[in-house]
Simulated assay, not measured.
Amino acid sequence: MDTVMQSGRQDMTEAEWQARCDLAALYRITDHFGWTDTIDTHMTVRIPGEPKCFLINNYGDLFDEITASSLVKMDIDGNVYAKDGKFNAAGFTIHSGVYKARPDANCVMHTHTRAGTGVSVLKKGIRPISQDALSVYDDLVYHEYGMPTSQEECDALGVSCQHGNSVVLRNHGLLTVGATIPGALRRMYMLERACEVEVIARSLDEEPAPIEEDVIRQYGERAKQQRANPEYGMTYWKAALRQIEGKGTDWRQ
Rank of each mutant, 00 (worst) to 15 (best):
H95A: 00
Y137K: 12
G183S: 10
M147I: 15
T44R: 05
D214W: 11
R202I: 02
I126M: 01
P210G: 10
E206K: 00
L204I: 09
Q225Y: 12
G78C: 13
C195R: 03
L26N: 02
L241Y: 00
I66P: 05
M147F: 15
D61L: 14
T149L: 08
F63S: 03
A82P: 03
R46Y: 05
V119E: 08
H110C: 11
K224I: 08
I56C: 08
T41H: 03
T67H: 08
V136M: 09
A19M: 09
N165S: 15
G85S: 09
P182S: 08
V141C: 07
V45I: 04
T41V: 03
V98Y: 02
F87G: 03
I126S: 01
E245N: 11
G248C: 07
R187W: 09
D2T: 12
E213N: 14
T44I: 05
L134H: 13
I181G: 00
R102A: 07
C107I: 11
P51W: 00
P208H: 02
I29T: 03
I181T: 00
W237P: 02
M1A: 13
C161F: 12
I129F: 10
S96W: 08
G85M: 12
Q162E: 15
G85R: 11
D11Q: 14
S135I: 05
T235E: 10
L140K: 09
R28A: 02
G183A: 14
T249G: 04
A223T: 04
I29Y: 04
Q226W: 14
Q131A: 13
R170Y: 06
T44W: 06
D132T: 03
H163F: 13
K100I: 09
T117A: 14
I129G: 02
N57A: 12
L140T: 06
K238A: 01
C154W: 03
V199A: 15
W237C: 01
V121N: 07
G233H: 01
P182G: 04
S135K: 13
Y189R: 01
Y99H: 10
W251K: 05
T180R: 01
R114A: 06
E16Q: 09
C161P: 12
A179L: 09
